[in-house]
Simulated scan of single mutants.
Amino acid sequence: MRKAAISLTLLLAALSTTGCSAVEREYPSAEPAALRQRLTDRAQWAYEGMALPRHETVTPVRVIPGHSCSAGGLSIEKTLPDVVTFDLSWTVEDVPVDIARTAEARLRKQFASAGWTVTHDGNRRGKTFVEFGFRVQDPKTGDTFDLDWNDSTTSLFLSGYTPCAKVPRSAAEGPSPDTWAPQI
């Protein structure tokens, strides 16, 4: 009897660990418009914080839903059709190395001052390449932003992502109705 109790306890512990739960994971419900607005507001804030010199206009983009949220449970590969992340990505082309370095430092400082946590440092230099960038996460919302630049493309890339949230299925199936581009 004792062996059975120990075995049952171990089985329940294994099933309740992250990614191995017998019960589907609960995601918070969220209003898609609020998530999209949060991303575009923060992307504008980031753009302004970099204080880039005049450049070609950033091509308007849409906030798009991503389907990278798994159900958990025993079938880890199963995704939930109404649980999504939202993401927004934009690019500024032809940014010289000195401007990219300065913009990266400004934005890193701005995110740190706002209480975001750097979760990845992408500043690297090799014999044949130079890269600048980082990933930050907002401890309040779970949103993440990535900034990347490399000398092979000389483009500055900024991407923002919300954490997984349960939204109406219609909002999980397509991009935002409106486009967004930084206001210069």
Rank of each mutant, 00 (worst) to 15 (best):
N150V: 02
V167T: 08
F145D: 01
T162S: 13
T154E: 06
F134E: 01
A165Q: 09
R169M: 15
Q137W: 10
T154Q: 04
T141M: 05
D143F: 07
F129H: 14
F132V: 09
W149T: 01
S152G: 09
D151K: 14
N150T: 08
Q137K: 13
D146L: 02
F157V: 03
V136L: 06
T141V: 05
G133P: 10
D148R: 04
D138K: 11
N150A: 03
T154N: 07
P163T: 08
T128S: 08
N150H: 07
R135C: 06
G160N: 05
V136D: 02
T162L: 08
D151G: 11
D146C: 00
D138T: 09
S159F: 10
E131G: 04
Q137N: 14
D151V: 08
K127E: 13
T153P: 04
R169Y: 14
N150M: 01
D143W: 04
D143K: 03
K127N: 14
F157Y: 04
G142Y: 15
G142P: 13
T153S: 06
D138W: 05
F157Q: 01
F129Y: 15
G126L: 15
T144C: 00
W149V: 01
L158A: 04
K127Y: 13
K127R: 14
T153D: 05
D148K: 01
R169K: 15
P163Q: 07
T144F: 00
S152H: 10
D148Y: 07
F157A: 02
P163V: 01
N150R: 04
N150S: 10
N150F: 06
T154P: 01
W149S: 03
T128R: 09
Q137R: 14
K166C: 06
F132E: 12
F145V: 01
S159N: 14
W149A: 03
A165W: 06
T162W: 07
G126V: 14
D138G: 10
F145T: 00
K127P: 12
F134Q: 01
D151L: 10
S155K: 12
R135F: 13
C164D: 08
T162C: 09
G126I: 13
L147Q: 02
D151E: 13
L158W: 05
A165T: 04
S159C: 10
R135A: 11
T144P: 00
V136K: 02
D146W: 00
N150I: 00
G160A: 08
L158V: 11
F157T: 01
S152K: 10
L156W: 08
L156E: 07
K127A: 14
D143T: 01
T153Q: 06
F129R: 15
G160L: 06
